[in-house]
Design a protein around this nucleic acid. Structure first.
Lengths: 215, 215, 215, 215
DNA sequence: CATGAATGAGAATTCATTCAT
DNA sequence: GATGAATGAATTCTCATTCAT
């Protein structure tokens, strides 16, 4: 009896998770508006009525995808920020985390980039706040770096963090849009991302100006 | 007769432009999917059937908004790139151009950010190419700067341009999302944008690392 | 031009009225809940989308049927009440009006009886008020009769009116339910209704007690 | 073992009755169509699947409510009709019975009035016959009164009974619709109903005409 | 050019009912 | 008996688009 109870609860969890996974796949493929609830159900191999057992409506599926995945992501970023490594390493870790997300969870990143991040649907305070937490964490890293004397303190960290996140964000978006093709010489995607991450952190820390330049 | 013909042609132009303006307002307010053709028509004060005289369908309105406005914007950026000023000034000009766009044409920027930039609808090659032209122009500026010895040439301009555009892009997006509140001390929006533009170019050129730091 | 304008307006009116007529037929046949909007459209020979051009939703059709028809009916009753005839004649006229309604507009009466009069949907103040106006008019007739000395004034007109309307109401309902079959001897429906009207007014005025009875 | 069996059977009875009671409450509150099977189950504190152990479907619940309660009601009316009291007293008893039903079993009366009495669902012969039995009993009382010389015998009892029942019916309906507010002077509802019952029987027996009137 | 009536494909959502556990 | 996950038929309503006037 306790077994069957667990099983059923387990099944319920499974189905819910299955629906979310399927929704991510389908949304990534055809976009939120281009996807019917029945498409999600077909992808999950269930009747579409069941979707409404677990979610109030199509909208709630998207919100749940965002919430559950984003909070996990923020957790990882938070852990990096709280670490004791040098600012440079923290930034490198975050850049790596973000750039690798696309490789590891391509569909989720697609949904995030196309359907969530800037969707008119997501202009509500809760979701805006959730997104802005990423900026706050990076700003905190920068502030810590300033206090430690590693970083210039004449730059507003609340603005500087935009440059860092913005750069990464656009790289990811460009990958999603297939704007960037990996250079022929690069052995694989991971290598390329490593190079990008290093370039971005280097640029962010040292700037692009030629120190020997005459300007 | 030539007069009335001109008038009518003129009217036609006007109506077409009126529809586009109205569509920008309406899309900015309720999003592309949340806006009905009749909403656009009501905003323009015309019958909705008339919209189909000027545009094939709703989709074409959005495409036209993008094309007409984006090419104008690209032209301005191009002019800056082609100028003879120092790289730093070029970047400052571009940052100013982008940051001011939100002030001057808020609704258009909203539509760009929410409906166009990353819409699944806009994953077609033509539009992707149009967007990537902005990156190419900025990369060109950077390349020119490298040739002139102003900029380090160990950094890939095709990656570096992401940091610059990405930073600006996120700032604009954040303004649209009302993530950023202008600091109390700042007299007005224009002042704030000027400060942000300077900070970003400074950061981009010189980096955030403390040159006197011990790391 | 004024002609075509009138024509179009006329057409609009016609279609709206056509939809209402069709809805009455369909609702009478299969009940409000048993009728699909598409049934109404098919009955009217139009596309069902057009129904939503003229009415917000299915509900509004029913409300409109009630409002437009009921106010006409109330007007007729009001006219009788305002007349100068004797109370007995007024009551006879009202009884005749109500009893004949079923013959003349069977479908409407069916809808009134089954879908409107006591529908849980119609428990809202406006509609309750509309219905109660019938009671008020009859009560006014009775009050006038009392003032004129024609009627006993020890009976509360606000209660007495229930007996009169209630009797008629149930007769009509029973006809709709086909509870009553017209007696074989009666030549036709109209004759039968005349007899019922007279019986009811006689009963209402004189009572059923045998005046020569010993009780 | 016999004990547990009895208990379970007992429970079964209880659950069935519980479902019926809950259904009456829920139907009274939101109407048959506005109520979901799960609402009834929640009201009863059981799983909605269990409802289908006791009833074939939602429809059968409503039918059962009608049948079980109506036959009890008819039994009470029958008993009054079969009694040896004077016609006036019989009518008074019936009026009292009906008028008090609303006080004692408000929800049931609401369901009867809104969902059963005139529902298109209830146009089937069996249920029409069940309802018409009430009319037959009252007609029998009237016929008996005519035979006993208490009542005029020039009035068709099959029509006269409509006036009596119709009056009561409308009063009850009006109470349900909250059309009638109890007069301020009246101490309580029961008192008010007593007054109404007396008025209606008086009116029914003696008529409203002023015997001293000149008409 | 202009209008808005007319069309109907399309999708979301509801909820009665079944059934494995 | 009891549960509630699972199913999917059924319908409402929206709205882009067409077209007669």
């Amino acid at each position: 009896m306790p077994d069957s109870t667990r099983d059923r609860a387990h099944q319920g969890r499974d189905k819910r998770g299955l629906i979310l996974e399927s929704a991510i796949k389908v949304f990534a493929r055809t976009g939120y508006h281009g996807s019917r609830v029945s498409d999600i159900a077909r992808e999950a191999g269930i009747a579409y009525g069941l979707v409404y057992h677990y979610f109030k409506n199509k909208e709630e599926i998207l919100e749940t995808i965002f919430e559950e995945q984003w909070s996990g992501f923020l957790g990882a970023v938070d852990a990096i920020a709280d670490g004791s490594s040098a600012t440079e390493d923290k930034l490198l870790s975050i850049a790596g985390l973000i750039l690798n997300a696309y490789r590891v969870r391509t569909d989720w990143v697609k949904v995030l980039v196309f359907e969530i991040q800037r969707s008119p649907r997501f202009r509500n305070p809760d979701q805006i706040r959730a997104i802005s937490r990423l900026f706050q964490i990076v700003a905190r890293i920068l502030r810590d770096g300033q206090k430690a004397g590693e970083l210039r303190d004449d730059l507003d960290p609340d603005i500087a963090c935009y440059v860092f996140i913005g750069g990464l964000d656009i790289v990811v978006t460009s990958r999603v849009l297939e704007l960037i093709e990996i250079e022929p010489g690069t052995p694989d995607e991971a290598q390329y991302h490593l190079k990008v991450a290093r370039t971005m952190v280097d640029l962010f820390l040292n700037g692009i100006r030629n120190p020997e330049g005459d300007s």
